[in-house]
């Protein structure tokens, strides 16, 4: 089996770092990094919904923004929303909305913001992962976390978590958002040509990756309560 440009195995994720509780004034916050792709997310809410006319008498309204820092990419990324970032914000918002118990907060708004700090492929996956952590940290009732990673086809081979040259030279890129407890896919996009059989293989590999991501998210959340416990004991 041929090696990948950064020496990883075809089914190997980059190094992962997941953390919670980094933004003091947010109700919840999270950070997620795959190699040199990183994103930080904050949750504010439930808050009173603005603008008022968007408030839903049956459930909370979820606001989500995906944004790339201007210095996160090789060429400077012009600040402000782009068509790409609006589409990404929409699909991430929908994935998170599906797991949040929105009926618990009728008329309210829950604001989720994700900032990509460093971009080296799979930025929407990192943003989704960080935001899941932030929501759980904020204590928003959720059915589960959404775990996300990408799979791709590079030189005809199906690989997990594409990065670097693989992103520009690869044939196919598939970001996946997966909810392990329900075995459901809540985010799925694909561009590039693939047969049905290849896609099946890719999705299976992606789900395997998402399960690893999920473990890291859970560990990050457990970590904050560990600190809390030890402080209690010291007192």
């Amino acid at each position: 089996m041929s090696e990948r440009s950064d020496g990883r195995k075809f089914d190997e994720l980059r190094e992962i770092e997941a953390r919670a509780n980094l933004i003091k004034r947010a109700n919840g916050s999270g950070y997620f990094r795959f190699g040199s792709t990183s994103a930080i997310s904050a949750v504010y809410g439930p808050v009173e919904m603005h603008p008022r006319h968007l408030s839903d008498p049956r459930r909370a309204f979820i606001k989500f923004r995906y944004n790339m820092a201007p210095f996160s990419t090789k060429d400077r990324n012009r600040p402000g929303p782009s068509r790409r970032s609006i589409e990404i914000s929409k699909v991430i918002k929908e994935a998170l909305s599906a797991v949040i118990e929105r009926e618990e907060f009728p008329r309210a708004g829950i604001e989720i913001y994700a900032e990509v700090l460093e971009a080296d492929a799979s930025t929407r996956c990192a943003a989704l992962n960080a935001s899941s952590i932030a929501l759980a940290h904020a204590g928003i009732p959720m059915r589960d976390l959404v775990a996300s990673c990408s799979v791709g086809k590079v030189n005809g081979q199906i690989v997990l978590d594409i990065a670097g040259e693989e992103d520009t030279e690869g044939e196919v890129d598939i970001p996946i958002g997966y909810v392990p407890s329900e075995n459901k896919i809540h985010l799925l996009q694909m561009d590039g040509i693939m047969t049905k059989e290849e896609f099946k293989k890719a999705l299976e590999l992606g789900i395997k990756g998402c399960k690893i991501v999920y473990q890291k998210q859970v560990e990050a959340l457990k970590e904050i309560f560990k600190t809390f416990e030890s402080e209690e004991v010291n007192e």
Binding site: A98, Q189, D191, T195
Partner: peptide
């Protein structure tokens, strides 16, 4: 062959459904 996929809206699919 497939050339593009977009899952859209709130609600998920199992791999088998996909």
């Amino acid at each position: 062959s497939l050339c593009a996929i977009q899952k859209s809206g709130i609600g998920g699919f199992t791999p088998e459904e996909i």
